[in-house]
């Protein structure tokens, strides 16, 4: 347990020290690259902004992700249970996913101009439902027929088969996809916050740092984003441990 915490903490410290050293050794000024020692000043100066903006980024990411989960699981179920729907929806879905979201962001920002919350949640959702839908559909469609038959031969309904077998069996794939999706949703949120004019959230704070040439602030935002991203990711990992911990093979 101690090792589990100590190793990443030490890794972070080493990383920060290396960064500080790099800036110091090269004699970079602040506008090229801020060093870790500049960051506390930025945080103390803008701490209330960090809290407000960080919260906005967080809740919009999480809301977008939750919608992506509901929609992605629903879509995955449809595609997982029906071959026809799978054949019909797959190309559409792949095509949609292939569009670089950086091009969608300005379109959405202009389409619903001023609706910052809506825009941001929408992009976070759009960018992150794909892996969830695919993983659920693959998990369901590759369920071995014998698993179905075990319950079906007892007269179980489709719903019972889904709850007792299909759903739990798909959970490991689902959480694998969720780890990807949470990162994507986070990227989506920030893209929108940066691009959208007069936006909110950490992305907007980054943008204002850029307009004011406040380089330490920009780097401070980056670190805050990294921190939030890590927190979100590990929340998913914790949920995975609780709900799909059985899929972890004992190491031997």
């Amino acid at each position: 347990m101690l090792r589990k915490i100590a190793v990443p903490v030490v890794a972070c410290i080493v990383f920060l020290a290396f960064w500080e050293f790099l800036v110091w050794a090269n004699g970079w000024p602040n506008y090229v690259m801020a060093s870790p020692s500049d960051l506390p000043a930025a945080y103390t100066k803008f701490w209330n902004l960090f809290l407000v903006m960080g919260w906005q980024t967080l809740w919009r990411t999480v809301l977008g992700l939750l919608i992506a989960i509901v929609f992605g699981v629903f879509l995955g179920m449809i595609m997982g249970f029906s071959r026809t729907m799978r054949d019909a929806l797959y190309p559409l879905l792949v095509g949609f996913n292939a569009i670089p979201k950086a091009t969608v962001v300005p379109i959405v920002a202009l389409m619903f101009v001023g609706a910052h919350d809506f825009n941001t949640v929408l992009i976070a959702f759009m960018i992150s439902f794909f892996p969830i839908a695919v993983s659920v559909s693959i998990g369901l469609s590759t369920l071995e027929p014998e698993y179905r038959d075990i319950l079906r031969s007892l007269g179980a309904s489709q719903a019972t088969i889904f709850w007792k077998i299909a759903l739990p069996k798909t959970l490991p794939e689902f959480f694998g996809a969720l780890k990807v999706a949470v990162t994507l949703a986070f990227i989506g949120t920030n893209l929108m916050e940066i691009v959208s004019p007069h936006g909110r959230g950490l992305g907007a704070l980054f943008d204002s740092g850029k307009t004011n040439s406040d380089y330490p602030l920009m780097f401070a935002v980056l670190i805050a984003l990294a921190f939030l991203g890590i927190v979100l990711y590990y929340v998913v990992v914790a949920l995975e441990k609780i709900f799909a911990g059985w899929a972890e093979r004992p190491q031997g």
């Binding site: 014998e146 698993y147 075990i150 031969s153 007269g155 019972t160 007792k164 739990p168 799909a244």
Partner: peptide, 30 residues
């Protein structure tokens, strides 16, 4: 299908997220 039938296949198809006891008890839930 009717509940008075029990089946076993070449593949034991046990559910990995259940203990052996819970696996055996599965039909009683149906």
């Amino acid at each position: 299908p009717r509940s008075t039938v029990g089946m076993a296949f070449q593949n034991p198809v046990l559910l990995e997220w259940r203990s052996i006891l819970k696996n055996v008890l599965l039909p009683l839930e149906i």
